[in-house]
């Protein structure tokens, strides 16, 4: 019992740290990149949330922002970069093209990046306004703080399964 409380508290501490320290990997492909620039620019200033370091090495970043349309040719690269991200990792689908493919429904465009990688927050808009992006980041902070992102949930499920297996084994 005591151990469990400690691990929960530790997890809370980790989540507190994580949510104020998003090092982003900007996977910028298209028009939304212009709005991503605006988000980083003085007026909206993503840095206020502690998310200003764009790390171009996937190993060092936590938050992958998929900014713009993902085409079928791009998809393997996206998947690979996602696999290279170190845990815990979160994904924001920035804009409607990344979320669903947008109004490009043709031979070349992936209908939403959730066909390829799991997504935590979808930001609609073509392209989304910077305010919407900030809202999305706050939403993700909340999710991370509560430990409800896709990967955190999966890790928890796996831990529970392990525990079950152990107790069954005993």
């Amino acid at each position: 019992m005591g151990l469990e409380i400690t691990t929960t508290k530790l997890e809370d501490l980790a989540n507190w740290g994580r949510k104020f320290s998003f090092f982003t990997y900007p996977f910028i492909t298209a028009c939304c990149g212009m709005e991503f620039m605006s988000v980083a620019a003085p007026k909206y200033d993503i840095a206020r949330f502690g998310a200003e370091f764009p790390r171009f090495s996937p190993r060092q970043s936590d938050l992958m922002m998929v900014v713009g349309t993902i085409t079928e040719k791009q998809a393997p690269a996206l998947k690979r970069v996602y696999d290279q991200l170190a845990e815990p990792k979160y994904v924001i689908a920035f804009g409607v093209c990344a979320s669903t493919g947008g109004f490009y429904q043709n031979y070349s465009v992936v209908p939403g990046i959730d066909q390829i990688i799991p997504v935590d927050v979808y930001i609609p808009g073509c392209p989304p306004r910077p305010e919407q992006v900030l809202d999305g980041i706050i939403l993700l902070q909340k999710k991370v703080g509560e430990g409800r992102t896709v990967n955190q949930m999966r890790a928890r499920r796996e831990a529970m399964k392990d525990k079950q297996r152990q107790s069954e084994g005993v």
Binding site: T29, T69, T71, K73, A77, S108
Partner: peptide
């Protein structure tokens, strides 16, 4: 190039 080929002409 071609990583952002979105099929403008087809659309």
């Amino acid at each position: 190039p071609g990583y952002l080929h979105r099929g403008f002409e087809k659309e």
